[in-house]
Design a protein around this nucleic acid. Structure first.
Length: 526
RNA sequence: GCGUCCUUAGCUCAGUCGGAUAGAGCAAUGCCCUUCUAAGGCAUCGGUCAGAGGUUCGAAUCCUCUAGGGCGUACCA
C-alpha cells in the first residue's frame, strides 16, 4: 500500500518522498514533512509549499483527499482503493504480505554445543532466528536454516569425561576426582544410566572408551535439543558438524595464503590488520586446532556453497569473534560484507520481581524446556519476539503465565477468536460478506481497516531492518483497535453487518498471518 | 585500559533512515456486563527520554564529553 503511494510520488516528483504515519489518524493515512526540507531550497515557507503540493493532486483515484496542515502534507486513501486492496487480500490470503524478493540467504542460528540441553538464552536466539526466517521466506527470499554442531574439540572430550565420572559416582558409588570443569545436570545422569544399561559398567570405567561415549552422547543430546526446538516450532533445514569439515583443512589453509603464518610451531591468522586487536592462534603447537579453526573451515564451506548472503545469529558473548571470522573470510577470497552477524543479548528471569532460579535440576542455568513448560511456547515466542535482541532482557515468568489481557499473546489471540466467533454466529453467508463493498465506513472502521492492511509494510520493515519486534508491536496495536471496535459496535444485527464482517475478516487475516510468521497459531475459539 | 552494546513512567519494554501532544503492559485508584466471549472496554495517576554541551526551522533519535551498567578483550567453547 505504502509502496504504491510511494511509487506514485516518485513518478510525480522524480525523487523519493519520505512517507510516515501521522500521529493522529484523523490527519489521513500517510503524511510527509517534505515541505520543511524544501523550504530552505525554495526560500518559501513550508506552509505555502505544502499547500501548493497538496493542490497539485486534485483528483487522483488513489486518494480521497490530499491536504496540507501546518506544513505537513497528509494523504487520505480513497475508499475504492482500500476496498479493492482488502478484497484482493481476502481472496489471496496466502499471498497477503508476501513479496517476490530474490536472493539466497544462509541463516545460521542457535548452534549451541551438543553438550547439554538448551538454556533460556539459546531460546531467544532461536526465536529471533526462526522469526527472521519466516519473515524472509514470506517475502520470497530463498532461505536455509542451518545449525552448526561443534562436535569436535575440548568440549566433546569433556563430555566423555563428565559422563563417565557421573556414572561412576552416582551409579557405581565410586569416589571420583572431579576436574575443575565438567558438565552436570539431570540429562547427564539419564545418559549415564543409559550407558550402563546399554554398554555395561565397564564402559563407565574404561577411559579408552571416553571418545566413543562422547560421540554417542553428543548425538543423544542433539536429539534433545532438536526436540526442545520443535516444542517452540523451530526447525532446521541442515546440520553441519564441525568434525566433518576437517578433511578440508589443508586445502582451506592453502586458500588463505598469506592470511596465515606459522610462528613457534603455531599457526596464526593475520587478523590484527582487519579490526582485531592481535593475530589469533588457529592451530596450537601440539597440532590441535582452536575453536576459531572450526569457524574458518565452516565459513569457507558456507561461501563455497554459494549463497548470496549470510546471516549469523550469535550470543552477545561472541561479539569479539566477528572481526576474526570476517578477516578469515577475506583471506579466503570472499566479501566479508556478505556476512551479517546479529547478536542476541543475555536473558534473565524474574519471578514476582525476584531473580528466578530453577531449583529442580542441578546447575545454575535455566533450561528452556522448563520455561516452556511453565508459560507455553506461544507466550515464550511472543515475548522474545517483542523485544529487540540487542538489549539485555529481564522478564517475569509470573506475568507470562497469566491467560488474560495482561499477557499480550492471549490479547492478540483473543482478538482473532472474537472475530471467528462473530462470523460463525452471523446468519450472513460468506459470499454476501465478500461481495459487500467497504465504502461509507465510520472513522473508527476506516481506521481499523487501514491498520489491518498495513501488515505487508510491517513484515518488510521488520525483516529488512532485522527488527522483528515490529511485528508483535503491530499485532498488539491491531488487536487493541479490534477490541475497542468490538466493544463500541454491535456487529450482528447491524444494518451494515456484511460490510463490517468483511472488515473484521481483513483484521483476522492480518492477525493470523502475523501470528503464523511468529510461529504461533491463531485460535478460532478460546 | 581498549573494544562493543546499552541507560525512556515505580517495574518490564516499544518508539531511533531527525518531524505534529514521547507510547504500551504491569503495579496503583475508579468506572462499564438485561448488549455478539468482561480472556474485553473507559478514565485517573505516573516522564528533566542518565547528565552536560553541540548541530538546526525542529533532537529520545545525529555528534562530542561525563557518569552508570552488560558483554568481550584466551592457544575456553
Amino acid at each position: 500500500m505504502k509502496q504504491r503511494v510511494s511509487a506514485l510520488l516518485r513518478d510525480k516528483f522524480n525523487c523519493d518522498i519520505i512517507l510516515e504515519k501521522p500521529k493522529d489518524r484523523s490527519f489521513g493515512h500517510f503524511s510527509t514533512p517534505i515541505a520543511f526540507s524544501l523550504s530552505k531550497e525554495l526560500r518559501k515557507s513550508p506552509m505555502i509549499i505544502a499547500e501548493e503540493i497538496a493542490n497539485s493532486f486534485e483528483e487522483h483515484e488513489m486518494f480521497g483527499a490530499v491536504e496540507s496542515v501546518k506544513g505537513y502534507i497528509n494523504f487520505r486513501l480513497s475508499e475504492a482503493f482500500l476496498d479493492e486492496y482488502a478484497s484482493w487480500a481476502l481472496s489471496n490470503d496466502k499471498q497477503f504480505g508476501s513479496d517476490d524478493k530474490k536472493g539466497t540467504i544462509l541463516l545460521e542460528f542457535v548452534s549451541a554445543n551438543p553438550t547439554g540441553p538448551l538454556h533460556i538464552g539459546h531460546a531467544r536466539g532461536a526465536v529471533y532466528g526462526d522469526t527472521l526466517l519466516r519473515l524472509g521466506r514470506h517475502l520470497g527470499y530463498d532461505m536455509t536454516a542451518e545449525y552448526y554442531v561443534n562436535d569436535a574439540g575440548n568440549q566433546i572430550d569433556l563430555l566423555g569425561t563428565s559422563l563417565q565420572l557421573e556414572g561412576r559416582s552416582s551409579l557405581l558409588g565410586e569416589e571420583v576426582q572431579w576436574p575443575e570443569k565438567y558438565y552436570r545436570g539431570e540429562y547427564l545422569s539419564d545418559l549415564a544410566k543409559e550407558v550402563q544399561s546399554q554398554f555395561g559398567d565397564d564402559a563407565l570405567r574404561d577411559e579408552s572408551r571416553q571418545k566413543e561415549l562422547a560421540l554417542w552422547a553428543k548425538d543423544k543430546i542433539l536429539e534433545l535439543i532438536v526436540n526442545d526446538l520443535k516444542a517452540i516450532n523451530v526447525h532446521f533445514d541442515t546440520f553441519v558438524g564441525e568434525a566433518s569439515l576437517y578433511d578440508e583443512w589443508d586445502r582451506v589453509m592453502a586458500k588463505m595464503g598469506d592470511g596465515v603464518y606459522v610462528d613457534e610451531g603455531k599457526t596464526l591468522i593475520r587478523s590484527s590488520g582487519l579490526g582485531d586487536d592481535h593475530d589469533r592462534v588457529v592451530v596450537r603447537d601440539d597440532g590441535r586446532p582452536t575453536y576459531l579453526a572450526g569457524d574458518i573451515i565452516y565459513h569457507n564451506q558456507k561461501f563455497e556453497r554459494g549463497f548470496q548472503n549470510y546471516i549469523n545469529i550469535w550470543g552477545a558473548d561472541h561479539h569479539g569473534y566477528i572481526a576474526r571470522v570476517k578477516a578469515a573470510i577475506s583471506f579466503l577470497g570472499y566479501d566479508p560484507e556478505k556476512l551479517e552477524v546479529q547478536l542476541s543479548q543475555m536473558v534473565s528471569l524474574l519471578k514476582d520481581g525476584e531473580p528466578y532460579k530453577m531449583s529442580k535440576r542441578a546447575g545454575t542455568v535455566i533450561q528452556m524446556s522448563d520455561v516452556v513448560e511453565e508459560i507455553g511456547a506461544d507466550a515464550l515466542r511472543f515475548m522474545f519476539a517483542s523485544k529487540k535482541c540487542d538489549t539485555a532482557l529481564e522478564f517475569d515468568i509470573e506475568e507470562l503465565k497469566r491467560q488474560d489481557s495482561s499477557n499480550p499473546v492471549y490479547y492478540v489471540q483473543y482478538a482473532h477468536a472474537r472475530i471467528q466467533t462473530l462470523v460463525a454466529k452471523s446468519e450472513m453467508n460468506l459470499d454476501d460478506i465478500m461481495k459487500s463493498s467497504l465504502v461509507g465506513l465510520s472513522a473508527d472502521a476506516d481506521g481499523l481497516l487501514f491498520e489491518a492492511l498495513l501488515l505487508p509494510e510491517i513484515i518488510e520493515d521488520a525483516f529488512e531492518s532485522r527488527q522483528v519486534q515490529k511485528l508483535p508491536d503491530y499485532l498488539k496495536a491491531l488487536a487493541a483497535k479490534l477490541h475497542k471496535f468490538y466493544y463500541d459496535t454491535r456487529i450482528i444485527g447491524h444494518e451494515d453487518e456484511a460490510k463490517l464482517l468483511k472488515l473484521l475478516l481483513v483484521v483476522a487475516l492480518s492477525i493470523k498471518t502475523g501470528l503464523s510468521l511468529l510461529g504461533i497459531e491463531a485460535k478460532d475459539r478460546m
